[in-house]
Design a protein around this nucleic acid. Sequence first.
DNA 1: TGGACATATGAACAATCATTCATATATTTG
DNA 2: CAAATATATGAATGATTGTTCATATGTCCA
Lengths: 114, 114
Amino acid sequence: MDRCEEKAIHVEKVKQVVSRLPEQDTLQGVADLFKALSDPGRVRIVLALAEAELCVCDLAVVCNLSDSAVSHQLRILRNLKIVRNRREGKIMFYRLDDHHVSALLHQSLEHVIE
Amino acid sequence: MDRCEEKAIHVEKVKQVVSRLPEQDTLQGVADLFKALSDPGRVRIVLALAEAELCVCDLAVVCNLSDSAVSHQLRILRNLKIVRNRREGKIMFYRLDDHHVSALLHQSLEHVIE
DNA sequence: TGGACATATGAACAATCATTCATATATTTG
DNA sequence: CAAATATATGAATGATTGTTCATATGTCCA
């Protein structure tokens, strides 16, 4: 069953690495967060919200997408606690929920532009 | 044509935000980077490589995946300059290409665990 | 209350992606 | 050179995703 015993290359290193990895739930959470930011449209939304609080209609213009498409994507971002919303009359304003996300985006920009 | 003039909500804010957004290529690059990390298997690979340099076979054990699956995923990570490889005889060792990525992962862990 | 506006949601379809299996390449050893 | 090992790659298929369209909800104002 254990492949280490058949073709084992670096058993000790593997054991040590495995022992230091976070739990599966945490890995999944990280992957979900990254997945939320894996679409250029959503990246644009998040970067826009890093600049200013905006409503759905504003974001549709900024992203050149339909209101509906933006709304669908905002739900994804909302579910992952990446954005928060606030109603003011008919209008729903969105902003970033968390400063981590902005930092994350800017760090990744460094990697991409480098 | 310009939706701003029909249902315009916050024209000035929109203009300012748009002017501050990176180019589409950059947004796409960021999205690609995040997409590469949007799979728990690849997150596991990257976190493992943040701990030690490992070969494909080691990673297959660590991630409980086939060698082939790991190899496919490593190619994705390689194409995005997230990992580098080095051959030593028959064995191909992988390590992180860039300290940004490790920082990115740890920042996202904070968001998730919070 | 009814109509207009802003946003949200459900379903469906097209496009994209991950995994698997078979096969190919590269390296070492006999 | 042939066999064995480690890794890589191509093609196919099953799953996931984003967008669209139609419709629903919530809010304001006449």
